[in-house]
Design a protein around this nucleic acid. Sequence first.
DNA 1: TATTCAGTTAAGTGTAGACATAAATGTTTA
DNA 2: TAAACATTTATGTCTACACTTAACTGAATA
Lengths: 234, 234
Amino acid sequence: MAAARENMSYRDIKQVVVDRIQNRIWAPDSLLPSETELAEEFSSTRTTVNRALRELAEEGYLERKRKAGTRVLNAPVRKAQFSIPLVRDEIAETGASYRYSLVEQTLLAAPDWLAARLELTQGRQVLHIRCMHYADNAPFQYEVRWIIPESIPEVLEADFTQSGPNDWLVQKVPFTNLEISFMATKADQAIAEFLDAPAGDPVFTAERITWLRGAPVTLAKLYFAPGYRMTTHI
Amino acid sequence: MAAARENMSYRDIKQVVVDRIQNRIWAPDSLLPSETELAEEFSSTRTTVNRALRELAEEGYLERKRKAGTRVLNAPVRKAQFSIPLVRDEIAETGASYRYSLVEQTLLAAPDWLAARLELTQGRQVLHIRCMHYADNAPFQYEVRWIIPESIPEVLEADFTQSGPNDWLVQKVPFTNLEISFMATKADQAIAEFLDAPAGDPVFTAERITWLRGAPVTLAKLYFAPGYRMTTHI
DNA sequence: TATTCAGTTAAGTGTAGACATAAATGTTTA
DNA sequence: TAAACATTTATGTCTACACTTAACTGAATA
């Protein structure tokens, strides 16, 4: 019944293991045979089995502990992966044409909520930018962004009339940390106007905060046009 | 300047490479030295360097092609990972107490939109369930679910008065495929009532479709209480 | 009885070397 | 000139083995 053919690659072994898990041959919470035993069964080596099991653990199928052994996770808490593309790429992928438009750019004192959120001392100057991203001339995303010039002084000389702050930032800032939240917000007057939707309508919203070596660089609120869905497959 | 100490683990090598990328020593789009050269520089072996670079490629820092070499990706399209926990676990993690309540359970013919979405032939029987998840007795999530008994006959005998269909399904069904979407929807009368929010308010919504070996098993719509945010760090 | 400690075991990691494979480049041939 | 073929080379993968480290087990001790 068991495979047992020669020269199995770590990929083949992964497949067999997944099959056995899915067919309850190895039930949730149960212990797998040791790497050495599996290597023998598959007429492979421990190194190869190790790679297979290690990757399956990363993918959320297994839990591994030294000495304790390898265990099948009962809750398939498999991890959904979303890649976080630039808007321009996201739009380009659908085949639509991308257009950018700057709405407003001002330098002002950080509002209290922003200072609190980014743990800034009060009254710091921040660059405030609002802009729009269009797909085939239909509103796609309304972006409201704050950038901390203290963390990246060149931003004060940057030109955001032709392309968005995101494009500029990924070129300039090798960010080290990132927090992303997704939520549903209610369209206020400005959002409604720019996204061409009725005020009060639900808007899918992403909020990104980026740090560079511990110092906050930018906070962006991204409001997506009505009908937007963020989808992933596993 | 360069590290060059002995006995670097693949972890150390990863760190050095990331540092160099972030300090623009290896600029975006540029080619890294070959594995062999790096192995020499770090007085390590190609196998170890390989593991470091392979993992960094998985994490989205590098792009690797045979013969072409290893290249620094310019857009740090790093991947956000969300784990998809059971509601009960999600609530338990905040320290709140979890309570479940069944709202409705009926067997009916699949509505057209559902049949279309799951690629069912028309008029199929489906089990329709609506239920609530509470955290500390406050509404947390309103769940609307359809299950295809054809794919999992035992579901007709299952008892959903004490615990939710999700709990039952993860025990029974080793799902093989999963599609998750997130969106913002407008609270209709039922949603508003159950989540204790004004009708018309924006509601963060997840939609999960699960397949077992190609056959659709269940579709769930999960409506989160106002204020919910899905957050992740990178 | 409870605690500490040593032994054992399974996974984690590193080294060395071989062969496989894909892609870029150079060379020959139609 | 262009297509077909061969060569080169960097990554991909596998094997075999050694050593490290975490965690369980059970025996010795307080």
